[in-house]
Write a protein that binds this DNA or RNA. Sequence first.
DNA 1: CGGGTCTGTGCGAATGCTGCACACAATGTT
DNA 2: AACATTGTGTGCAGCATTCGCACAGACCCG
Lengths: 258, 258
Amino acid sequence: MTAVEQDRNISSSFAKGLAVLAVFDAAAPSMTLAEIARRTGQDRATARRGALTLVQAGYLRQDGRMLSLTPRVLALAGGFLQANQFGRRVQPVLNRHARQMEIEVTLAMLDQGRVLLLAQSTVDHGHITYGFTAGSHIPLAHTSLGRMLLAGLPEEEAAAVLAETGIPCHTSQSLTDPAAILERVAQAREQGYCLTDSEFEAGITGYAVPVSRPGQTPIVAGCSAPRGRQPQADAERLLRGLQLCAAELRQAEAVDHL
Amino acid sequence: MTAVEQDRNISSSFAKGLAVLAVFDAAAPSMTLAEIARRTGQDRATARRGALTLVQAGYLRQDGRMLSLTPRVLALAGGFLQANQFGRRVQPVLNRHARQMEIEVTLAMLDQGRVLLLAQSTVDHGHITYGFTAGSHIPLAHTSLGRMLLAGLPEEEAAAVLAETGIPCHTSQSLTDPAAILERVAQAREQGYCLTDSEFEAGITGYAVPVSRPGQTPIVAGCSAPRGRQPQADAERLLRGLQLCAAELRQAEAVDHL
DNA sequence: CGGGTCTGTGCGAATGCTGCACACAATGTT
DNA sequence: AACATTGTGTGCAGCATTCGCACAGACCCG
């Protein structure tokens, strides 16, 4: 902008516009122009142009003064999902195992210091639905998915990621000391699975296992359930199920080049 | 650009960049720079800057000379899905009815002359999986979803949309005369449901019913299955199931402001 | 080996963007 | 009711950015 000459191969106005699109998330599903400007750190006029461009392109809609995403953004994700054959190679596997385990199964990866949900089984069970969907972000430090993902990284890298993101506190049981969390991560790396209990939602236990092969971008599968009467037995059963699911995904090479 | 003065509130370089992101679809999951330039109608240098910006932002990845979408694009869709509580209000309903009907149920809307799939249940049945996911596009003219969507539009508007998009031909049974298709659309409007047989995939029958209330943006639910022994009975059963599903979605106001 | 296609880059020109400042509308606070 | 606050639309001048072309080299293919 001012001092350093920007890379001439990068379009700064495009990048700013993308930032506008990306600012819409679960916490702020619909915002006013001024709010967008604040959250993107852009000048109001700039944010306005970005937003209006998005409206014209059909990705944003304007209700009075509120702006919100339109369903068309799904088409962007659709390109990715179809390219990787998620509908054929990933979703059916998740569904099958989910049904067998009678619990929702989630596939996830790292994204900007958070856990990005890639896919989720859509099986009708009696239990609670948490309302997360593909494309949702959940925290890294206090979920089994997050810790298992960190475990897929080299140790220093995991520490770096964790340090960058900061550690919120969701429940009274959330670990707050980075070292303690890294301890659990290391444990997960050795064991080949990860359990967390009540650190993100009270009373809920999370289970996760790796899917990607060592060295690849970490991908994990997991599930979560209210803590039951026999935690041991539950854990064994669910982890076994997740391992089977992960093995099948690995074998199908369904998630190799993400 | 040249003749008309562009609206000063629209950022043209941002719009061009978005076009780059949007060219990636099922038909072209990974492309070379030159191909992107061709398909977007942009100068190669322009397309290149757009693509590189997307790479820097993490939405595109570069493998050698091929560019492809990264999972991060899912996060964009995630914002929409969470904002509209799809995970809580839509998906469970679809899943439940799908399980009861023992068939996949799809929710869809219009998008640029095509059918945009918004959500899809996936029961774990023995049948084929078509591999479509939320965010996929399917044709308008020869699917029950598409015709039912057209039926949700005023008659002239439906005709206009249909005229704009052109009419491909997928199977020997595909109707090719716009008037004949509009005939079926009108029929669907009157009946409140739509059936198609073998017009998109040979031997497959499609079923669709409206979900949105009249006057709103059309949203429909549908399913498809190989033609069975008792087409009549199948149709009755499936349409009844879809109607129930649609009614429940309507009542939950799950899709009111899309 | 040669034609075709693809990529990276440099550069001048002009255009498109930026950010500020002002006027006004809407909201909500005392 | 009047005020304070927050949001919105617009104009403008200057400058950084982006555009599009053209060239050189890499790569692929028959």
